[in-house]
Design a binder for these strands. Structure first.
Lengths: 134, 134
DNA sequence: TTATTATATGAACATATAATAATATGTTTT
DNA sequence: AAAACATATTATTATATGTTCATATAATAA
């Protein structure tokens, strides 16, 4: 009843503008509704994606891997990774903003390290995963 | 000796072309060398980054969150996420290629689900992390 | 067979992102 | 104070990525 009403609604919309909305029919209404109620808020989806996005770059993974071995300064990272200082600083800024690394200053030198063991655990899960896929 | 030779070499290059190489001085040679020996191969860095990259998108996170609740077909996902079917299929293809989701066909309908508990653990670690940051 | 439905794919476009060059900032040393 | 140095930032450019449209494929029903 509610279902056929909605179907009518959908085909109406489809006539107006096929491109505007998802005009698919629901196949498993019950599942869709129960999953919908388990979905988080928009902001949480974006935060979660943004968190993982940081790990999704070769340069940042290299930096994180290095920092998982030892605290390092920017200059050391440049040399290790054979990269321009500004490129390294850019990535460190992102890592800093996401609270994935922390830093301490000692005179002119800034030392970076992993923010907490949480980050190390995420890294290790990823390492495990790709090991298994080989 | 080797060191001063290298320095001379670097400043020479710097004169020719400042942009060519990392011209920074090494501050902590010992650390750089020991970390260098702990770094993985290039391919492993890329694989790890590619793995996390998949989680670094709102749409894919939404799909994964949904699939962590229940197996779903493409059509259901379209309705749940209010997205075009082709957009959903494109993302499912990426998830499939990375072996993050698996699928089974039942007639015309294709059901997707998380590939293994590994994926669920990665997701949950991420969820925990952003919870703590709030 | 043809029609219908569910999903997949290719190409194009718009946006996001990483690296670079050039420059600025902040710290120490002289 | 000025010079030297380590790091940060801004603007730009090249590349990567997500969504859309159009179309293709696969399975079922008539």
């Amino acid at each position: 009843m509610a279902q056929s009403a909605e179907k009518a609604d959908i085909s109406e919309k489809a006539q107006e503008n096929t491109a505007e909305l998802c005009t698919e029919r629901i196949i498993h209404r019950g599942i869709v509704e129960s999953v919908r109620s388990a979905m988080p808020e928009e902001a949480e989806l974006y935060d979660l994606a943004d968190f993982f996005k940081i790990f999704g770059d070769r340069t940042r993974i290299a930096i994180l891997w290095a920092l998982s071995e030892s605290e390092m300064c920017v200059c050391d990272l440049c040399m290790l990774l054979d990269m321009k200082q500004s490129a390294v600083s850019h990535q460190l800024k992102l890592l800093k903003q996401s609270r994935i690394v922390k830093y301490r200053r000692e005179g002119k030198v800034v030392y970076y390290s992993l923010d907490d063991d949480h980050i190390r655990r995420v890294l290790n899960l990823g390492r495990q995963h790709i090991q298994e896929q080989r």
